[in-house]
Design a protein around this nucleic acid. Structure first.
Lengths: 156, 156
DNA sequence: CTCGATTAAGTTGTGCACGACTTAATTGCC
DNA sequence: GGCAATTAAGTCGTGCACAACTTAATCGAG
């Protein structure tokens, strides 16, 4: 801690500091990319990108969800998901079909290959958790603060 | 708090849970995008994207840095920065010139317009800080944990 | 029943992010 | 001094992310 004691005084937050190192937003941006980079080699073995992995997490949790459901879970637009889902389908991991009861909606479901991938994926979060090097309490604190922040920033 | 008490027991971290809501990495990813989205309308008024804003932060802190210096500060590759810097130059905010003492290196410096933008930018981190809705202690804790996490994940 | 409003998914265009590669300048070892 | 290794910046291709828009289906007030 105690960074930037050279220019920003005790509480950089209160005084509109423009120092990069004072900015929580930058810490967030850097951490997010660093974690994604750490995932990359592990996910390469599964043939997934990080956002694709997140979509698979949703489907492993509950099969036969709509594109909209995935978008709600991941907070992603259909304009992001549509091409991504097309790639997952091309990879043979999911299939898409129009719902009979609502032709606007597209139901996503796992193929056998997609369902099978779940077992290979189990080691991934463990490995990342270890790489993060935070105690369980620190992880819980971080999760809590990040959710609070996301909630505030989104609604606000 | 207390999410996912239905499937994951006390400590989801220790048992390789594949539940989306248990994953710190997802909280990170979601928070980062939510904050960037919150920045967007404010930065629109400055004519900047979020990564461009980060580059400007570096230059406002220290003028005449090399592309490499910016890359080190933001942990971005030249393949990301080169086109971004070209856009900043096209916007009239920075200029680029080859160093005389080392022709490989390109020095970046602010134009008057780029320097002037600093004043308009001062209100931005304050507004975001408020939108985050975290106390100073919470922000400090989050920054600390995120830096620790980034450090571990990067080196590890 | 009908027609305007809403909703779901997808398309298009712009701008990151990054791996793999290229080009050109500099360094360092002999 | 010469040349292999390193370094700085940039190009190219792929895949997000998102705004603005389109298309098509459903809903709902009158």
């Amino acid at each position: 801690m105690d960074q930037a004691m050279d220019q920003a005084a005790d509480d950089p937050v209160e005084q509109g500091s423009l120092l990069l190192q004072d900015q929580l937003c930058f810490a967030l941006y850097a951490a997010s990319r660093a974690v994604t980079a750490r995932y990359r080699p592990l996910l390469d073995e599964l043939g997934l990108t990080y956002p694709q992995y997140l979509v698979m997490l949703v489907l492993w949790e509950r099969d036969r969800v709509s594109v909209r459901d995935v978008g709600t879970a991941l907070q992603l637009e259909s304009s992001t998901l549509s091409p991504l889902l097309k790639r997952l389908e091309a990879a043979g991991l999911i299939r898409r079909e129009r719902r009979a009861d609502d032709e606007r909606s597209v139901a996503l479901h796992l193929t056998p290959a997609g369902a099978e991938l779940r077992d290979k994926a189990r080691t991934v979060p463990v490995a990342i958790g270890e790489a993060m090097g935070l105690s369980s309490e620190q992880q819980a604190t971080a999760r809590h603060l990040l959710r609070l922040l996301t909630e505030n920033v989104t609604r606000g």
